[in-house]
Amino acid sequence: MSHIVCFDIGGTFIKYGVFNPKSHLLVKSKMATPTSHEIPDVLNKKVKSLQHDFHISAIGISSCGLVDREKGMILFSNNIQGYSGMKLGEILFSLTQIPVSVENDVKSACLGEMWKGAVKDKRNAVFLTLGTGIGSSIVMDGRIVNGSSGLAGELGHTVVVAGGKSCSCGRKGCLERYASTSAFVQDYKEEALQNGMTGEDVPGETIMELVMRADPIALAVYQRFIHYISMGLTNVIHLLNPEKIIIGGGITEGEGPFIQDINIQLRNEVMDVYGNEDTVIASSLGNDAGLYGACYLALNRMNMKESV
């Protein structure tokens, strides 16, 4: 039986898994992300190791950075130094002689959710991940929107505060400087300092626990966070009219009112004609979404799967 090995390459870890042709995830694990020039060799060694137990007929890769899907090339990455410009698909194929598919991690996660997760059978949706920045992908009429050069969907770099905080993209006031998990953490740190606390870095999940305990500093920061997320999503709803907006990232995985509070805020912001049904839902595949998307693309490449 043929199997598909999939990798989800991030700045800190590379997650990997093996799927059978019926898209069942058989095994999964992760390893530390090496330096950029070592990535092809590390992936090749992992494939060779897995070949002792599985017949690998395709490789799917979900990767951080801007990706040219057709060329299997990393156009730009600020997460892994020296990664920009790597022809990852071509290099890995030369090492393994196995067909390789490469896609951006957020688009892969969106494909995974469309295929097996929260947006299955939805024709119009937007997928976001909240983390160091904001990753996003748009689905219209059942297809990922890539734009003229594959760069469509950068919601995180739409401006919500004119002349606001500096962003890594070189502009000021971008949504991800106010509505990403890292912005949430930074805002809490600054608020804590202003209130005589130490201002140490605290994970977003810990801040959410403080919100649940009605900590006044955490609540003030959280309310601003919800406001900016809702501001960005209101624009998305008015522009694209999606059936659902799916949010992924560690901050969505714990118990709490996060998704509900966004929907409540949206009901106050979105025009009535768009309806009052909850638009925002949490990712259902979690950290595995990128692996499923990579598997979907690999199966498509082998003509074993219809389009989403």
Rank of each mutant, 00 (worst) to 15 (best):
D201G: 08
A282H: 06
C167V: 01
S284M: 11
E190L: 14
E269A: 09
R177S: 12
V236I: 12
Y222Q: 07
R177F: 00
L210A: 12
V202N: 08
L193Q: 15
Y188L: 04
N268V: 01
T279E: 00
P216K: 07
S283W: 04
H227T: 08
E243T: 04
G232F: 01
E269S: 14
L151V: 13
S180Q: 03
G256Q: 06
F258P: 09
F258M: 03
E190M: 11
R171G: 09
I281N: 09
S180N: 03
L175D: 02
S166H: 10
Y222W: 08
Y228K: 05
L193I: 15
C167P: 06
L210V: 00
L151D: 08
E154V: 02
T206P: 06
D187R: 13
S283K: 05
G256H: 06
S284N: 10
E176W: 03
G248V: 03
V161W: 01
A220D: 14
T279V: 15
A152L: 04
G153W: 01
V273Q: 13
C174F: 06
Q194N: 15
V202K: 14
A183S: 10
C169H: 02
E243V: 02
Q265S: 15
K189P: 08
S230R: 07
G254R: 12
R171V: 01
V159F: 01
L240T: 04
S168R: 11
P203H: 07
D261C: 06
V270Y: 02
M231H: 08
A282P: 10
F258L: 14
K189M: 14
E209G: 10
L193S: 11
L233N: 01
V159K: 07
L239D: 04
Y222K: 07
I264N: 11
V236Q: 05
I246D: 03
D272I: 09
T279N: 07
T206E: 15
Q194V: 04
E243A: 08
F184E: 04
G254C: 05
L266Y: 04
L233A: 00
Q194Y: 09
S284P: 10
L239N: 10
S180M: 03
G249T: 05
R213A: 15
